[in-house]
Design a protein around this nucleic acid. Sequence first.
DNA 1: CTAATTCTTGAACTTAAGGTCTAAAATCAG
DNA 2: CTGATTTTAGACCTTAAGTTCAAGAATTAG
Lengths: 191, 191
Amino acid sequence: MGRPKSFEPDVVIAQAMETFWTKGYAGTSPADLAEATGVAKGSLYHSFGSKRELFAMALDLYGRTGSEVTEEFLSRPGTAKERIRAYFVLLVDMDLDGPARRGCLAQNTVEEFGGRDEEATRAVHRIEERMIGLFAARIEQGQRDGDVDRDVDARAQALFLQAILAGLRVMAKTFDRPVLYQIIDTALAGP
Amino acid sequence: MGRPKSFEPDVVIAQAMETFWTKGYAGTSPADLAEATGVAKGSLYHSFGSKRELFAMALDLYGRTGSEVTEEFLSRPGTAKERIRAYFVLLVDMDLDGPARRGCLAQNTVEEFGGRDEEATRAVHRIEERMIGLFAARIEQGQRDGDVDRDVDARAQALFLQAILAGLRVMAKTFDRPVLYQIIDTALAGP
DNA sequence: CTAATTCTTGAACTTAAGGTCTAAAATCAG
DNA sequence: CTGATTTTAGACCTTAAGTTCAAGAATTAG
């Protein structure tokens, strides 16, 4: 019993995620969160404990959403290389077409927190590992489909792709589309 | 005339750079800077104007120092690929062996400031372009030396290397040495 | 309807960030 | 020395970040 919540926690977390993503962790004040969510500061603290905890939930949501999108996108018809290229292009486009050049929340987090926050670092690491797993799985799928060489080391290749992806998203903050596309081409030129 | 400065501005900028690098821009308070440099807050403001201006000088110093080190290191004896590999290994080792996993100041800056700061973004872009220029120059040198194929597009290859480097430095915050070395191997496996 | 319980919210509180200012200290030209 | 000039350093100020709180508003069990 008790008074029912006047908001959907998941929705608020999603809105908080957007705000943190756009303005950074330090750059987002409780007042910003209240405004972005339409929930008063006091209620936010009542429901989520602290800015830090809300952020953890937002980052977690980010990771889950991201890997769902990735998985779905990679599994569409095409060869492994085609799908991965399309995915990279998608991300570059999303980074550039948004009004903010906000990049990847997970990367931003680990950059902003440095090694100084154990929990944040772990959370980001989990997100990255999941991405690598998805890449590796798609490559192995390609091997079964016959569009990827049998003797490719899927894990090594997936790590490489993750590095490229991370690099692209850093560079998407300061370079423009043709450059980023060219990097994608070079990175995927090999086998 | 007038009372002479009791500190060397360049030294203070270097100390400020270290502090910003370790703690991030937002994470560094004027009090931190005073402690790190041994110069009182008031004097810092008197000499450098604002935290933001001091940071700009620190970032500039970082860029110049970095490109000097890079240039020197790439020009040591060896093929282009050998030198670039050695350079990547050097950076990974520096990232991991420091006590802080602070990564690259330029990247941290652009991540922390997002697209929200025009000047910081420009400064980082200049630093990145300089790095790319050095990579391209080393590749062209390799072509003259005969250890790099004539038909390699030096600029495209340099952009690719910069992306890998950026990716490595992001991943150096959450992954350990063998993984990073493996990425270097994969990235440099081609021609 | 009442009580127990849970939410809501703006006010209030505490701490510190970022910056300004002033009185004293140091230097040098004359 | 004197005066002009520049630095120094800590006190001081203002604003806001992050959080807590008290008082009231919903809701349901009984």
